[in-house]
């Protein structure tokens, strides 16, 4: 029963990801005084791509064709691990937060390899930049994980959320710093403004788009969908780790419904924040990103130090 719920939750996650992307696009359009496309536009885009012919570059090897499946599959798997509407689902035990970071790295590896497979300049450019940015983002992410795990005494996501729920609404300085750090990391890892611009098609500024430039049709659909899942994943991580309230704590329909409503509301609010920052900020130069990510790392360190200095003796 619990496993079925876990699978259902994963499906909900995958199905809901394009909706979130649509919502963000809508918010951005409103903020920029444009006419917004329908909320369902990402689904239509996916359907359109699904029907289009896929074209493979002549120099592509099997890595290029395997990468979309792998990237998408790993995205599905990460979606299965992160609690969305309810905690204590058995799938969360398969792997912990460190493993989640490992999964992201696995998907990224294949994405980057696919970028280098064709042998064009754009692929290599995107790949090199992606690897650089993620190398800097990962330590910052890990500092956040360490801060949380040290407070909660676990690296299991579900248990961590349980801990925050059980300890009630207390203001922990370490969590504030960690939240800030994780938000910065999330923006960098999901390729949003100011680190990367998902809407750009100017070759020299692309990062994520440069790697998937050669994909088309169904392959592109898988890649796009996977990156939407990843965006939602970071949103859910932020929402459910730092503000886990009203997430379902048992598997009764009422609790699950409440959890679903809560997460939708939380994500909707987070999207407002993202859309606002994307509208207000301009994309950075690539060599400014290191400063941005060092700042994220610094916040993570501050979080950990404030945990050690301020919180341990009162815990």
């Amino acid at each position: 029963m619990a496993w079925i719920l876990a699978i259902l939750q994963t499906l909900l996650f995958i199905g809901g990801a394009p909706l979130l992307a649509g919502w963000i696009k809508m918010l951005k359009c409103w903020l920029q005084n444009r006419n917004a496309p329908s909320l369902l536009q990402p689904y239509r885009d996916l359907r359109k791509l699904w029907r289009k012919e896929s074209i493979l570059p002549e120099s592509a090897s099997w890595i290029f064709t395997a990468a979309p499946y792998l990237v998408f599959t790993v995205a599905v798997l990460t979606a299965a691990v992160v609690p969305l509407v309810a905690v204590d689902l058995p799938s969360a035990r398969i792997i912990d937060v460190f493993g989640l970071v490992g999964f992201f790295a696995l998907a990224r590896t294949f994405l980057v390899l696919a970028g280098m497979d064709i042998g064009t300049a754009f692929g290599g450019m995107g790949s090199s930049r992606e690897m650089t940015i993620s190398s800097l983002a990962e330590p910052a992410m890990l500092m956040v994980v360490f801060t949380l795990a040290m407070s909660a005494g676990t690296t299991n996501l579900s248990m961590g959320m349980d801990y925050v729920l059980d300890s009630g609404l207390v203001l922990r300085p370490s969590f504030v710093f960690a939240l800030g750090s994780l938000m910065l990391v999330a923006v960098a890892e999901t390729g949003r403004v100011p680190v990367d611009n998902p809407a750009t098609h100017l070759e020299l500024t692309m990062i994520h788009e440069a790697m998937i430039l050669e994909y088309s049709g169904r392959y592109l659909a898988l890649m796009e969908w996977a990156s939407q899942i990843k965006l939602m994943l970071y949103g859910v991580l932020i929402a459910n780790i730092f503000f886990p309230w009203y997430i379902g704590r048992d598997f009764s329909p009422a609790a699950l419904g409440q959890g679903l409503l809560a997460i939708m509301l939380k994500l909707a609010l987070l999207s407002v924040l993202l859309a606002l920052s994307e509208t207000l900020l301009a994309k950075m130069r690539i060599f400014r990103v290191q400063e941005y990510l060092s700042f994220a790392y610094l916040l993570g360190v501050l979080g950990m130090l404030s945990h050690i200095i301020l919180e341990v003796y009162y815990a």
Binding site: S134, S135, E138, P139, L142, M143, V301
Partner: peptide
């Protein structure tokens, strides 16, 4: 954290 940076650079 240094190990994490190492790991990420190792992937790169």
């Amino acid at each position: 954290a240094v190990l994490a940076l190492t790991g990420a650079l190792g992937v790169a």
